[in-house]
Design a protein around this nucleic acid. Structure first.
Lengths: 341, 341
DNA sequence: TTGTATGCGTTATCAG
DNA sequence: CTGATAACGCATACAA
């Protein structure tokens, strides 16, 4: 394992200069910088994180605190972040956050002190806490907000466009020929529920179908049981929809089961679309058409922003919000409505 | 932040002695040891992992390489391990393993070199590779095997008892009064499939029901679609079972859907039991009765064994296999069979 | 049984 | 713009 001394010798400079190059500091001649870079590459030099951390008190690892360990959203994000960190030659240090307990600031502080991470990925719902936002701002922690409800000056944010995705998914159903499309909404506390419903409504309105009424837009609450019962109700009506767009895959599965109970075959008699692309979406048959959240890309963007430490570009590249493109995953649960309808 | 020097001063000893106490080395008088311990507690001393790592080349972090990032099993294990590490004052460093690619040894070596972890949790299928086992043995890496197919001399293993759990779940159904109980098997390549089927058969035989024939034991392959189609077939027969025990929750959900399609209500007309306790098990309604794998306990045992570094006990405590008790989770999908049957 | 001194690979200070 | 040298907190050879 080559050390900074080996690099310095090879490049014919002092270790301090090597250190300067590593950290993208100014006050190094371009020619020198190039020579050092070359020596580093040739020796396959890798700075020792341990030494760095000992000296500066900061680890190069990236921290992420999450609240709900059982959420599919979080587990998939964890994996995507780990991958992104791996690609960037970093570690991911994850920690559990007790959302219900108070003292969010104290919890974050404890995590920071314990792990010494210099940068942080903030996920919902913590990313929307102004207390936490101010805290990382004043502590000088590099942070990014993942899917925040609204962006915050000084802290870059990465997210997908929920409203647009919902609009597109609904349009897909519309393009297939559906006119009566039901929507199973999420939980009112989640901003995503609102955005997804809005996207759905916009698509309906833009096709001249008018704003859908209560017979079409029913509460799902991101809850299987509620979605099941309300989907059953909606599908039992005389003017039942020929398609249902659920604001989450779990609720889409509920609609799926409701259809089964009522003897409606999917997708022939009822089209179903979901949102999230959780594992079960690919497990069931026919597989669920859904919106795939771009976890990998969101994670990569986050890590890229966090590891961008060229002090020169830092000022100019004042990124405040990166919107990552989603994917509409067309699988087996959507088809044109029966002619009889 | 207190350092080893502060502790030494406070205890009136040298830093070497503090170091000895920290690492549970011998050659320290009990009285001295106590004094040092007290000083550490009073100063809330926390050894710096960075300094340790720099000096010894080893991190105190615990490594875990996993193969299938989308598996519910793995994501839940990840979380449990993270929690267990947290409780033990350690980190978890996870890495992705490419099972399909060759050179398992090289992959492991790269991970070790990169992360410098001194201990390792080996999960399926890597834990069953003799090449990997020999490698960690000769490199002197502390390792534990999680749910291996068979134990290996020199490397402690932690697992649950799949056969016993399957037997108990089947007995639960038997106790309810069921006599014709179907079984959806897992994938033939997984040792767990075999064990779970065996447990089911033992329970049936022990109640004098004889060894179940092919009409009752059908392939599920840990695959939703296969399970769905075979469950439908099984439930369409004249002598259909009044209960189904699936070797995984995913397949249990398939049976659930098959029942829905055939107009069989759960649990009144068909009882269903699963295995794993994945999130969807609690999502659906009625919620699925299933076997909960003791992730938290398995993780804690693993970390305990890995961090047990008292050199005195190391020789005597030659643990080779720890079997962690599972839980039978009784929820809503199992009930006595209808009298009419 | 206990202590002293040295070095691990960085970053930072200050002098050139 | 560049370099010599002192820390950072711990483990360990070697002494006592």
């Amino acid at each position: 394992m080559a050390t900074i001394i080996d690099v310095a010798k090879k490049a014919g400079v002092s270790i301090k200069t090597v250190s300067r190059v590593m950290n993208n500091e100014s006050n190094v001649r371009d020619e020198t910088r190039r020579r050092v870079r070359k020596a580093m590459a040739e020796l396959e030099y890798n700075p020792s994180d341990a030494a760095r951390q000992m000296r500066s008190g900061k680890s190069r690892a990236i921290g992420m605190l999450y609240g709900d360990p059982s959420s599919g959203y979080q587990t998939r994000l964890n994996h995507a972040m780990m991958q992104a960190c791996l690609n960037a030659g970093r570690y991911l240090v994850v920690g559990l956050f007790d959302v219900a307990a108070g003292d969010w600031k104290g919890q974050l502080e404890a995590f920071l002190n314990r792990t010494k991470v210099e940068s942080l990925v903030m996920v919902p719902p913590m990313c929307d806490s102004s207390i936490l936002q101010e805290f990382i701002l004043e502590r000088g922690i590099k942070g990014i907000l993942l899917s925040p409800s609204r962006s915050v000056p000084g802290i870059p944010a990465v997210s997908m466009d929920d409203k647009k995705a919902a609009r597109e998914m609904t349009q897909h159903l519309l393009d297939l020929g559906h006119k009566r499309i039901g929507h199973l909404t999420g939980h009112p506390d989640h901003i995503a529920s609102f955005l997804r419903k809005q996207g759905y409504e916009e698509a309906m309105v833009s096709r001249g179908l008018g704003r859908p009424d209560e017979s079409l837009v029913v509460q799902g609450g991101f809850d299987f049981r509620m979605a099941l019962s309300n989907a059953e109700k909606m599908l039992s009506a005389d003017d039942r929809p020929t398609a249902i767009f659920a604001a989450s895959d779990d609720m889409a599965v509920a609609a799926y089961m409701a259809a089964g109970k009522l003897g409606l075959s999917v997708p022939e008699e009822l089209s179903i679309a979901g949102f999230d692309d959780v594992p079960i979406a690919q497990t069931i048959w026919p597989a669920l058409s859904t919106v795939a959240q771009p976890f990998a890309e969101m994670a990569e963007e986050s890590v890229r922003i966090l590891t961008e430490n060229d002090r020169a570009t830092q000022a100019s590249n004042h990124v405040e919000l990166v919107v990552v493109p989603h994917k509409i995953v067309v699988r087996g649960t959507c088809a044109p409505p029966l002619l009889a309808q």
